[in-house]
């Protein structure tokens, strides 16, 4: 069978279409053991190459976890698995105690309360900043509702709150495509905030930001931790040092080390991986 016959990037069929994109009250996520995300033995291979190799990871509710690792370690692939973009070949991924992420589609997972920022900032370039945020707002996402939804005062308040937080107050009516790289990163983070997710996955959120902006992002993330859980993938060690309590090092699809930044930085394998052999 030719390799492209394999269903890789595809999510399965008929996985509960009915539950799509309902407005899900994500406080319903069962957090009885204080764990919000639990990955077990996840394996993903592309044409025989293992991007994730029996990866096991767990994130506590309210935690801010940083994930580091050299290029190609599988960080983005891990996020793809959590958000339903890539189906793992084997292994399981649980959101809370009961929600099996490997059986859900992207919109379902998003509606469940997992928000994601892409490595390459992805915003709606031909919509205004305001519309970008409005689309992200946590509301009923069904077609039926979208046909009658109106931009009311509550929406405007929420959007202007977020605009303030991401420092784009003056840009509300600008096309998102005209923003700078860093501003797009902020806008995307802002869209995540509008979604009010329980768990935020942020793939290299400060790439392309000035030091000043990076610092503000660190503040923002720290203020989010507690009510939200955050998983931040970053190469910028200074940024990681400024926000993280616990750091996980991925390498070749596996967890290489885990602990405080100081601790992992002193582990010989980590040094070897980062400094090369």
């Amino acid at each position: 069978m030719p390799p492209w016959f394999k269903k890789k990037q595809q999510r399965g069929f008929g996985s509960g279409d009915a539950g799509y994109a309902r407005l899900v009250d994500n406080s319903a996520v069962d957090l009885s053991h204080g764990v919000i995300l639990y990955l077990e033995d996840i394996t993903v291979s592309f044409d025989g190459f293992k991007a994730l190799d029996r990866l096991t990871l767990s994130i506590d509710d309210g935690e801010l976890r940083c994930i580091i690792g050299p290029n190609g370690a599988g960080k983005t692939t891990m996020m793809d698995c959590i958000t339903g973009k890539t189906r793992p070949d084997s292994g399981s991924a649980y959101f809370g105690q009961a929600m099996d992420l490997t059986r859900m589609t992207e919109p379902e997972i998003a509606a469940m309360g997992i928000g994601r920022k892409f490595q390459k900032p992805t915003v709606f370039e031909r919509h205004s900043v305001f519309e970008n945020l409005e689309l992200a707002l946590k509301r009923d996402k069904r077609v039926r509702y979208s046909l009658v939804a109106q931009v009311d005062d509550e929406v405007r308040d929420r959007v202007s709150d977020t605009l303030q937080r991401i420092r784009l107050e003056g840009e509300a009516e600008r096309m998102a495509g005209l923003l700078s790289h860093g501003q797009k990163q902020w806008l995307e983070i802002g869209m995540l905030l509008m979604q009010e997710p329980r768990l935020l996955l942020l793939d290299e959120p400060v790439a392309g930001m000035t030091d000043d902006e990076t610092e503000r992002t660190a503040e923002l993330f720290q203020s989010l931790a507690g009510q939200h859980s955050l998983v931040v993938v970053e190469h910028d060690m200074a940024f990681v040092a400024s926000i993280a309590s616990i750091v996980t090092v991925l390498h070749e699809g596996r967890v290489l080390a885990e602990g405080t930044l100081d601790k992992v930085q002193n582990e010989p394998q980590v040094i070897e991986v980062y400094l090369g052999r």
Partner: peptide, 27 residues
């Protein structure tokens, strides 16, 4: 309407729309 905004958003960045919780299929 909001429907139209979602529709154009799907046109421009479908996966972003999905990760916001909309199911592009129905739109």
């Amino acid at each position: 309407s909001k429907f139209g905004r979602v529709l154009t958003a799907i046109r421009d960045a479908e996966s972003r729309v999905m990760f916001l919780g909309y199911n592009p299929l129905w739109y």
